[in-house]
Structures are given as structure tokens and as C-alpha cells.
Design a protein around this nucleic acid. Sequence first.
RNA 1: GCCGAGGUGGCGAAAUGGCAACCGCAAUCGACUCAAAAUCGAUCGUCGCAAGACUUGAGGGUUCGAGUCCCUCCCUCGGCACCA
Length: 805
Amino acid sequence: MKSYDHKKIEKHWQKEWAKKGTYETALASDKPKFYILDMFPYPSGEGLHVGHPKGYIATDIVSRMKRMQGFNVLHPMGFDAFGLPAENYAIKTKTNPMDSVAKNVERYKNQLEILGFDYDWSREVNTTDPKFYKWTQWIFLKLLEKGLAYESHEPINWCPSCKTGLANEDVEDGRCERCSTPVEKKPMRQWVLRITKYADRLLQDLDTLDWPESIKESQRNWIGRSEGAEIDFAVKGRKDVLKVFTTRPDTLFGVTYVVVAPEHDFVTELLKEAAALKNRGEVIKYVAAARVMTQIERTDAKKDKTGVRLEGVFAINPANNEEVPVYVADYVLAEYGTGAVMAVPAHDDRDFEFAKKYDLPIEIVIRCEDHILTAWTEEGVLVDSGPFSGMSSEEAKRKITESVGGKWVVKYKLKEWVFSRQRYWGEPFPVLHDGDKIVPVPEEDLPVELPKVKSYEPTGTGESPLADVEDWVNVKVGKGKDARIMRRETNTMPQWAGSSWYYLRYMDPQNDTALVDPKAEKYWNQVDFYVGGAEHATRHLIYARFWHKFLYDIGVVTTTEPFKRLQSVGLIMGEDGRKMSKRFGNVVNPDDIVETYGADTLRLYEMFMGPFDQAISWSTGGIMGTRRFIERVWKMREKVADGDGSPAATLSKEAEVLLNKTIAKVTDDIGAVRHNTAVSALMILSNELDKSEFIPRPAYESFLKLLAPFAPHVADELWSDLGNNNSIHQATWPVADATKIADEEDIIAVQVNGKTRATFKAVKGSDKTTLEASALALDEIKKWVGDAQPKKVIVVQGRMVSIVL
RNA sequence: GCCGAGGUGGCGAAAUGGCAACCGCAAUCGACUCAAAAUCGAUCGUCGCAAGACUUGAGGGUUCGAGUCCCUCCCUCGGCACCA
């Protein structure tokens, strides 16, 4: 028999599959559908390392099994290419990013193709293709029409290095997620999407999703729903009212001062009046200092609390009409709640710290059994709270709120989505400015194509480089005397725009008159299974859910969630345990591995490494194990006997049981993405089959079918070598014969005082009495039991006998 | 601080409450070879010559029986965090 030549085999079958269109997705079919999707890659200039395909291999395996099981499978691939990496490369090389993106896409596709994936490339999408972003722009127009997109001049996060505004989601610990530069607050004009309108639905519907708990929890944290009361504190001698938000209105009688954020309107107002404050100068200084601090400085919880008293200003506690001082302090955040809090130092750590420092009174109003409460989360019984004393916290919350005319409200940490970037490489907004008026570009004029420019360098002025392209920016609207010049919006959309809906486009990628044809949308419905990195938990996966719900509301889609089931991929680390990076010189290139060991070996190895969602280090030694496995399977071909009924061509009873068990296990494991244990089961089966001199052909064929999703090339090669004319990938997935799964005999473990001392074989289905008698008759057991009379004997049929002395 | 996922051999790990360590890597020994690689066979949690005892982060508990269930605690990773 010829030796296993992975290069020849893999090249041959990749050509063959392409030629025969083995993986083309049918447009309409009476088969049940299955839509399985990978998070599409960002094609950077560096190419793929071995970590990238891990998720793609996993979905490829699932999709191949589903196809063999008779599903009409949609398993597409595309590219997400707008955004900073491509743009920075363009700046450096002074080339149009369109060109470098095309080149990188080519490179990525080649790298993916040699791995033997079953993508239907006729459905490829690219977010930077005007035919694609026409519909990204269309969605924006709809958001604008429904009042969910608006212009704002609020201060936003600004990255001085990337020279662009950022969404809240793009800030990590006060730093720009891309370049780690501390972000600044900068008031500027920008486009904002009202994602908070969907906060409640985004939160609620998480419960309906088959997603990893950790991702759902991240989203819950990010949305940050909390319920509480808004309570008005009147200001003594003025018409102003300070509205505070609190989750613990039951502590209202313990308020000893009120704090407002430095940016609070009340402070701004007071500072306008020369005589309102006795210490006006001090307050001005404090507010100004807070304004120039970075987020990191501002929000560091370890930092000493600072604040300034508004001398001469008193708030009136509506519960007992007590006058309390008012402070301005930067530990209160302007953007959360009402920007003002009632301070209860006895029951809040932060207020306590502040009260200590500024020597403010502390009044205990909650007791919990025998101790005084010091944390917000604890509840107890009210004391020194007028008519509410003796009431439970739970009850008092509502009652006190009601009694002071407060309102029970829901607040979210989630902020509106800052949607514009002052950069070149993104989707242009389809809007025109006519003086102060916003004029949407008519749908029939979409797409608004991104023009070529001379310089891609961000300006840093709050305008994108597009602002300099006069003949693009200035648009003549109307005819004759009515004609007027309007200016195009020159901000561009953030990198997350295209990926917020791309999965819908695969359903109907060429459609020029609709984002997706309603029939195609109805058929493919939603993504059944989505696989990608957990790092997208609070950006891509929230944004896509938001847009999907919006598209549902306007009737474009018929489902309320885009991704029914989600699975996170664990990273592949470098052999040194660090993240794979050029910087550490620990990057492993899949091209090299495919060259040396073959794609099938790489695929098997990456799946066999360990649990799929776990981060694991690459091991050059480890890959030899899966290569050896394939070579053993290859050699086993010589032992295959045709099914002519001779003894050599029948399977031993044990092997038959194992084969059926393996069919069931591999099927289950692939469904649950336990690819590591599936590979292990295949190895066990091959070891068993290889034990005998001859292997019956049907058994070997079943084994090859189970192997086919993992190692598609070698499986098809061996399959055709057996004389099959069709591709193994179009063969029917084996089904376990339930009657053959069970062994003929049960192996019964016998325990004495909880320790296993012996095992014996029993006829299947033996009753309890028989099992007990057999167990007690065993010599090894007599040794342990001796003359003692067992106190108790527990028999689990088909499993074990437990003797208690 | 709150929430989530984890902690099992030298390593990656496996185990519907029922024989802990399957499968693989590495290692050791042997066969083949002039030799090496490859391949094949054997050994491979700890202590012990053995019989056997011990072993799933620590300590308790439930159970005939716990890696698995319950309680307390420690550690690692991830999310949120001066969010009132």
C-alpha cells in the first residue's frame, strides 16, 4: 500500500470538492435547515496564527456532521475590514486601505482554504464592499427615522492618540482599548444611538438564550440595571430642587448631608450667581480641577475622597425636614442616576469615608439582629426613623418613598452608543447638513461611497480627513433656482457597525433591493449556532442584539434574537504559555504546520488539545500524537475485508458494542462541541479495530464516517479507495444501534464498607437477589467479610453490590 | 467589594453520585537496526519487596458509596466596580 502523503491527498480533495460544489448551500430545500456561523475575522497584514482557526475547525466539524445527518447547512465566511488596523497601515504606507484589505483578504482566504473548510464561498461578505455597506447605511437611515439616532454635543470619551471619540464600550479601565492611552472627556458633536431604549429587552431576553453563563453575566453587568427611588430635596431659601437617586430609601432618616457631582447643573447655576456661595472661589477651583482629571484619576476607588462644602446652602430632608449641608465631590458621577446622592454615612462605605474626613455626623437607622449595618447590601429593621421605626427595610423602601412623594425608578449603567468616529476608514453616514438641519440621503442614492483621499491622517480637530475632500463634501441638491449646496457628514461609523448585522447578509448576499429577502430570512431564521471569542461579550454581541431587535421592530427580521446558541473559543497560547504575539516570537503559523504534518493532523490536534472553551498552550510534541493516529488509520486500510460473510469479515462482539457506543458518543460530543472527547473515542475505537487481523468493511466505513468531519481529506481518500463513488461528506451519518450498545454481560463491582474489593461478570438483567448471592460467594469478598453478618447490602442492578458490615 | 468559570498524575486532560486518572504527550525499559530515527511491545499517581494503604485546593457534612451534592474557607482566571 502506498504511504500516507498528506500534501497530495489534501490538495487533491480540495480541488475535487471545489469542482463538484460539494459544499454549496441549496437555496430552497425541504430538508431541515441549520445555520452555523463563525465570528468573521479582521484580515490584518500579519495573517492567521494557529489560534485563529480553532473556532473555524470546530464549526466545520459540526457543519459536516449536520450535513451528513441530512440538514441543509449554511456555513459561510466573510471579512470585517473597516477600522483602525487597516487605516493605520494605510497611513504608514500611504496606500488606499481598499487595496491592502483586498490583499489581506486574499492571504486569509488562502490560509483558510488549505485547512479544508466546507465554506460556501459564493456567499462571502466584506463589510467594506459598497454593496454591503449600502445596507449598513440603510439601517442607519431607519434608526434616524425612528428617532434612535441623533446628534449630540455631550462630552464623550476621546482618545488623544487615535484622535477619535470612543464609545463607552471602547474604554477599558479609563484607557483606549486599542492603544491604552488614557481617555479624556471632550465635548464634541457626534452621532449617538439610543441603545438604552433597548436595555430592558437586552437584559430580559438573555434568559431565553443558550449562551455561556459567563457571557450572559458580563452583559448583565454591563447593562447594570438597578431599581431605586428618586427623592427630591428642597434647597433652603431657593426654588431649586435636588433630585437624588438611591437604592436604599429606607435609610432616608440617616441622611446627614447631600452630595452633588462637580458637573451638576445646580453647581453651574450657583456659580453664575456672584453671591450664592460664601466660598465661591474654592468651589470654582474644585470644579475646574475635576474637569481636567482623566477618567483614571477620577474613578480610582482607592483615591482619597475629596469635596468642597457649598457654604450657605442647605438641603431639606423631606422625611424629617432636617436641614443638611450640601457638598460637591467627585466621588459622585454626573452621568449615573441623577448626579446627586443623599449621603448616609452610617450605612455606606463611601459616605462613611467622606464623613470621617470632613467630620460629618453619622446616624444609625438600620439594625440587623445584633449588629449595626455598614454595607448597602444588608437589610434589617429601621430605628430612629420616626413612624417607620420597627419596619423592615424591604417594606420601608416603598413606604418611605411614597411618603415623601418620591418615584420608584429603574436605572442602567449602560450608556448610549457613541456611534461616530473622526477617522477615514469607516462607513460614511448617509446624511447631509443643511445649515443646522439634518437631511437624510434618499434610500435610492445609497450607498454613499467612501471617496479616495490624499491623506488618511486623522486631523485631531474633531473632523475626519473626509472634511478636506471638498468635491465630495459639498453636494448640490435641487435644480435651478432652488439648488443649494449641502455638506455631507464627515464622521464615519465605528468598526462595530458592519458586524452588527452581517450574519443576515449571508442568507441572501447578492440582493440589491433588500438587506435580505423576507423568504430567505424566514427560511434561515436565526443563527442556530455561533462560535467566537469571549472578548466580544460586551461589544459585538450587545450591539448585534440591539440592531437585531431594532430590525425586528421594523419588520425586517422575524426573530427577536440573532444567535440562538453561542459557544466561546478558548485561546491557543504560545508554547511558552504567553499569548501568541510577534513581540514574544512565539507565533506558530498554520501554513507551516499544514506543510509538515497536514491539515487533517492540525485539525485533529486542535480539537484534541483539551476542552474547547479553555485556553491551552500549543505543543509541538503533542501534534505528533494525532499524526500517528492518522497514520494508523491509514495502515488499517490493508486489513479491511470485504463483507462476504467469512469469519474474517465479522466483527467481534466487543468491537461491535464499542463501535455502536462510539457512534453514539461521537454524535453527542460533536453536538455539544466536546470535540476533545470525540477524538479520544475515535482513538479508542481504532485501537480496538486494529487489534484483530481483519477489519470488516462496514465497520471501517462507519469509523471513516465518524472521522470525516475531523479529518475530511484522509477520510475521503480512504473512502474512495474502498470503491465508493460519492464523497464521504455526502454519505449518511451512522446511527447507533441501540440493541447493540449494551454489553451482553454486566460487570458488577462489589464494595465492602464503601471500598471496591472485587468485580464479577453477571448475566445481563440479573435480579438483585442473584447479584447479592454471587457477590457474597466470591472468594475475594469472603476474605473481607469473614464470618461477620452484613448489616446491610445495597444492590444497584447492572452496576454494583455494596456490603456494609 | 459583587458576580461568573475553575482548582484532578511530570504535562494536556477523562470520569449519568457507583472500580479516579480513559485518550494522548513526555519519560523509562525492551524488540528491530552496524547505529540512529521511525515503528512495534512493556512500564508509567504516591508510599511499599509484597499484601496493602493513601490520593481529585483545605476543612467539615449528607450518603452504603462523593472529583461529582451541601456548608465554611483558600487560590487561579474572567466580567463589573466611588454606579449611590
